[in-house]
Computed example of a mutant assay.
Amino acid sequence: MNNKNVLSAALYIILFVSLFVLIQSLSLFAGSQFVSLLRSPQATNGVDMIKDGESLAMTAVVSSLITFVLFVATKWAPVSRNYLKTRPWGVFIWSGLLALGSILPMEFIVEKINLTMPEGTQAMFESIMKVSWGYIALGIMVPIAEEIVFRGAIQRVLQNALGERNRWIAIVIPALIFGVIHLNLAQGLHAFVIGLLLGWLYSRTNSILPGLVLHWVNNSVAYLMFNLMPQMNDGKLIDFFHGNNRMMYGGLFFSLCIFVPALFQLWKETDKGKK
């Protein structure tokens, strides 16, 4: 591990995070200004909410696209088809299953710690989730932008600077930053844990694609649950099981029966790919 390389990596990480936050902040500001222009005094709250959601979702799509183009064009996050040539379809499937198996346990942990999102953040996400553009934003474009920045750029630079011996440091630091930028404990804890899984997948494959599948499934399930089961949006995990504790713990056990084998299979598959 070379001190000069570590310093260079630290400076790059500061640059990457600063640009990511700047693009997100400017897009959020532009979106909020656009929303205020679209608001009509004669409109009902429902109409206003749809306008708000569409505007915020579209600005999220644009900011994610700008982030993607910037990081790929500058080669801060190199993109190639090399990993796809290995035909890693099994890795993709297990990555999706890993995401599915993590959803209920993570929700259970967040509830037990008694963490909730700030009301403003909750309202913003709800307005985005209610529109079709919301899925393009939160389900597709945001995962792409975040994986490009946090794994394709930040973790790649750290791995190169720290070497194989310190690979877990290169996994934990991007996951920690990923959690912190969410600016609230409820989302931050979930982002940190998911970030560890995403970072582990990247370190095993040197590709953002398996993590992108995991991220996409995680966000897609959240979007589907919000729209298919609106009664759950203000509820607890126990409400999903109609107040039945036995069913809830059975659901958690079933989730772990997906999560643990998926983790094991990914460890095997990615090890085979390395060899």
Rank of each mutant, 00 (worst) to 15 (best):
N3I: 07
I14M: 03
N3E: 15
Y249N: 08
L65S: 03
K85Q: 12
L237K: 12
D234I: 10
K130M: 00
I238P: 15
N82D: 10
G134N: 00
V35Y: 06
V61K: 01
G235A: 11
L37T: 06
V193G: 10
L183N: 12
W200I: 02
S63V: 06
L11C: 02
Q155W: 03
I208L: 10
Y83R: 02
P105S: 13
H182N: 01
F253D: 09
R246A: 15
W200E: 00
G163C: 03
I154L: 10
Q231D: 09
V213H: 02
S64R: 05
L212T: 00
K75M: 14
R81I: 11
L65P: 00
D234Q: 14
V72K: 14
L65Y: 03
L158T: 05
I208E: 08
L37C: 07
F259S: 09
L84H: 10
L158D: 11
T116P: 01
Y249C: 05
M225F: 07
I238T: 11
I238Q: 14
T86I: 06
M229R: 15
T67G: 04
H242Y: 15
L237Q: 04
Q42F: 10
F178A: 10
A30C: 12
N114D: 15
T74E: 13
P261V: 01
N82I: 10
S95D: 07
G139V: 12
E164M: 15
K236Y: 14
I148Q: 08
M232Q: 13
G243R: 06
H215W: 02
M141L: 05
N227A: 03
M58F: 13
N218E: 02
F150K: 04
L198M: 06
F240D: 14
L158A: 14
N45W: 02
A30R: 09
Y202M: 01
M129L: 07
S255H: 15
S255W: 14
V6A: 03
Q24V: 14
Y12A: 08
H182W: 00
N3G: 13
G96F: 11
I208N: 04
N233T: 13
P174A: 07
T74V: 12
G96L: 09
L228D: 12
K85M: 15
E126G: 03
L19P: 08
A57M: 03
G152Q: 06
L104C: 14
L84Y: 01
T74Q: 11
S207N: 01
I173N: 04
N2D: 02
I208D: 06
L84K: 03
S36A: 11
L212M: 01
E54N: 02
G243Y: 08
P230V: 10
I177C: 13
K4R: 09
R246M: 14
G120I: 04
K112A: 11
R246S: 15
L183E: 03
N114F: 13
V149T: 09
G31P: 04
K272I: 11
